[in-house]
Design a protein around this nucleic acid. Structure first.
Length: 711
DNA sequence: ATACGACGGTTTTTT
DNA sequence: ACCGTCGTAT
């Protein structure tokens, strides 16, 4: 029986008979295994798989857990059924429900979902049209505007309070922001689009509706939520609404790993769970099967510094007979070595040191993909990426600038959206401006003539011949090609003869396959993209990857929506498993590394100002969150941990002028922590344990500057 | 009136 | 390396 491989606490959690259950699972304690086992156990006890709902933080996590649940259940018919469990992120599951009940919510059936970039663009558009923020005073930029809006919605708190607390430098614009946000909401409604926050808001509204919500709640026999320490107020509301009648709910999490405060998550929520669900059984998992004790010692020492915490120490189990230890190719009796603290002169030197150690670990038997370089901010790896390329070390990077955020990819997505929904004004507005000599003003005029949301696709296309007159004559032909392609691939039957992928895919009878449609659009857009961007050819390759991915999808509309809800972390992800047998190093932000583990972990740029970030200085809760972030990074390591501290950094990244200063090691690397590490000083200038730099004291005293001559 | 090039300032992290 | 603003050329 599969529960036999679990330890006592894990088994208690997995086989909890019913009613609310809270699993406090420290890092590496087999949380994934336990949750997967619980799903398997529920099914084995007779729960209908499609009535089990598993909410996870990423879709990858859902896949992994359901895969393991299936393994647990074996080849029985129940095992096959595990695939029918409903699983995904809050947002992707919300999308499913909202689509199903779109009519009741007054939404068009094929409503579009805006990703963060689209939403910021719309916010900006609304701001311009409302004439807000034109006062010449510094006004928040569009992405900041969306951050503020989103955080207010997710925290479910008044804008005023939130500004004072999290965006004090924007407080003076409070009134304008309020008006802007109301207008933004109205505009989304009139466009028939939802942003990511709306998905949750609409799901909550459904869940609270006596009729629809009642059915919904009753149809979910068991609700399981992973990473509960990172849910926000809106998500807590949702969970409570879904459980107003039934009491079967399992939450799993670790308040020591709460790192999404910037998204309005509060670790407090996990501690309040027992109050929200009276009679909650609590199970605590403390046995760590992932890391060696020296690694855990350092992590524990970091966690202990927290101002407010319920102290818990992770203990390493001798070897992993139970739970989530990935098989290691190295002998279990290899001595556990203490983490290494590597002092580097600057970030360039750091890049070299990281490469040296990565290759060294590889010599000792750790594949590149069993190693990861983790960082606070995605640009921390800029220099490292150059060095990796120079040394021919392949890598993939997670987090940071997403593939989907590249301008040309968004241009293409706009076209893909139009293929399904010609009424999407935003998408028209976007691609029209790619044309030579076309800016916002002309694009707007074309839209006026086109009236995209009046009538069906055929009506809109019928207006094109007159609408195109607003374009400068040089641009008309290129635009015709795009509109022609749109007409040819449009979802409606009768658009084009021949080339039908008869019976293939879910686009309905007479429709072209998603891949063919995507390809047509790509071909029409290619000359425009090539002309509009200086590095055209490279960008076109990205579009090819997208076309290939669309080819795997059954329905173009769903393909685009899924892309927004579950963006590929890297272009390699999108391409699929083309390079499956290749070995590569993983680069990732700490946030994106959540829930993962590697044999060797390298943590970059541990100097004060970067990790913890300067932006969090002064706010105790923010500093605590940065500390938990480091804790998450440290606990990703199985056997090897390297911490890098560049002591000199350049103030102006402009160039080689000597505008540098000396930074201190991260305040989290206290004496206690450092005492648990092996120090390697590669700077050659001497750094003492407090981070005082001999050279800095001398250098700071003597200053040479002729700046005074020029002012 | 509009588009585009030059210039200066820049709050990480993600569904 | 990006975004927003301003000046200029069309």
């Amino acid at each position: 029986m599969f529960v036999d491989v679990l330890n006592e606490e894990q088994r208690a959690a997995a086989t909890h008979p019913g009613g609310p259950l809270l699993v406090l699972a420290g890092a590496g304690t087999g949380k994934t295994t336990t949750l997967a086992a619980r799903v398997a156990w529920l099914i084995e006890q007779g729960a209908a798989p499609e009535r089990v709902l598993l909410l996870t933080f990423t879709r990858r996590a859902a896949r992994e857990m359901l895969g393991r649940a299936r393994t647990f259940l074996g080849r029985s018919s129940r095992g096959r059924h595990a695939g029918r469990v409903v699983g995904g992120t809050f947002h992707s599951v919300a999308h499913r429900f909202v689509r199903r009940h779109a009519a009741a919510l007054g939404l068009p059936g094929g409503f579009g979902v805006l990703d963060a970039g689209d939403a910021a663009d719309l916010m900006d558009l609304v701001r311009q049209e409302a004439g807000l923020g034109q006062t010449g005073k510094r006004f928040p930029r569009k992405s900041t505007l969306l951050d503020i809006y989103s955080r207010t919605v997710n925290a479910q708190r008044p804008l005023r309070e939130l500004l004072a607390e999290a965006f004090p430098w924007c407080e003076r614009h409070g009134e304008e922001l309020g008006r802007l946000f109301v207008e933004y909401g109205a505009r989304k409604r009139s466009l028939g689009v939802l942003d990511l926050d709306d998905l949750l808001l609409h799901w909550r509204a459904l869940a609270r509706d006596p009729a629809i919500g009642g059915d919904m709640g009753r149809s979910i026999e068991h609700l399981l939520i992973d990473e509960y320490q990172d849910v926000n107020g809106l998500q807590v509301d949702l969970v409570r609404a879904l459980r107003s009648e039934r009491r079967d709910v399992t939450a799993v999490g670790d308040d020591l790993q709460a790192i999404y405060g910037f998204r309005a998550a509060l670790a407090r929520h996990i501690l309040e769970f027992p109050e929200h669900f009276p009679g909650t059984a609590i199970v605590t998992l403390e046995r760590n099967y992932r890391s060696t004790q020296p690694v855990l010692d350092v992590a524990n020492a970091v966690a202990e510094q927290a101002e407010v915490s319920y102290p818990r120490r992770l203990r390493a189990e001798a070897s992993g007979e139970a739970g989530g230890l990935a098989p290691s190719s190295e002998g279990a009796h290899a001595p556990a070595s203490p983490p290494e603290l590597v002092l580097c002169l600057d970030e360039a030197a750091q890049a070299g040191e990281v490469c040296d150690r990565v290759l060294d670990a590889r010599e000792r038997g750790a594949l590149l993909r069993e190693q990861a370089v983790l960082m606070r901010a995605s640009h921390d790896s800029d220099l490292l990426e150059l060095e990796l390329a120079r040394r021919d070390i392949p890598y993939v990077k997670y987090g940071g600038l997403r593939y989907l955020e590249a301008a040309h990819v968004k241009d293409f997505l706009a076209l893909l959206r139009l293929a399904d929904n010609a009424a999407d004004r935003l998408s028209w507005f976007r691609w029209l401006q790619l044309l030579e000599g076309v800016g916002p003003a002309i694009a707007r005029r074309v839209l006026e003539a086109l009236e995209p949301d009046a009538g069906g696709l055929a009506d809109v296309l019928a207006r094109w011949p007159s609408a195109r007159e607003a374009l400068p004559s040089e641009a008309r032909e290129a635009a015709d090609a795009v509109v022609g392609a749109l007409a040819a691939v449009a979802g409606e039957p009768g658009a084009v003869a021949g080339e039908r992928a008869a019976g293939v895919g879910g686009d309905g009878p007479g429709a072209l396959a998603a891949g063919v449609r995507a390809e047509r659009l790509r071909d029409a857009l290619a000359p425009i993209v090539a002309a509009h961007y200086p590095d055209g050819p490279v960008r076109l390759q990205d579009l090819d990857a997208l076309v290939a991915a669309a080819g795997q999808a059954s329905d173009l509309g769903r393909f685009v929506a899924d892309l927004v809800l579950d963006p590929p972390a890297t272009s390699q992800d999108l391409a699929g498993d083309g390079s499956l047998d290749e070995d590569w190093l993983v680069l990732s932000t700490v946030h994106s590394a959540k829930g993962l583990e590697w044999r060797a972990v390298h943590v970059l740029a541990l100097y004060d100002g970067n990790f913890p970030s300067d932006l969090s200085a002064g706010d105790r809760e923010a500093i605590d969150e940065e500390r938990r972030l480091l804790y998450v990074a440290l606990t990703r390591a199985q056997r090897e941990l390297h911490l890098y501290v560049p002591v000199r950094y350049y103030h102006r990244p402009r160039g080689s002028d000597d505008g540098h200063g000396y930074g201190k090691p991260s305040r989290f690397l206290t004496d206690d922590v450092q005492a648990l590490c092996r120090r390697t000083d590669t700077t050659g200038i001497g750094v003492d344990p407090e981070g005082e730099i001999a050279a800095a004291r001398g250098a700071a005293r003597i200053e040479v500057s002729v700046d005074a001559l020029f002012t």
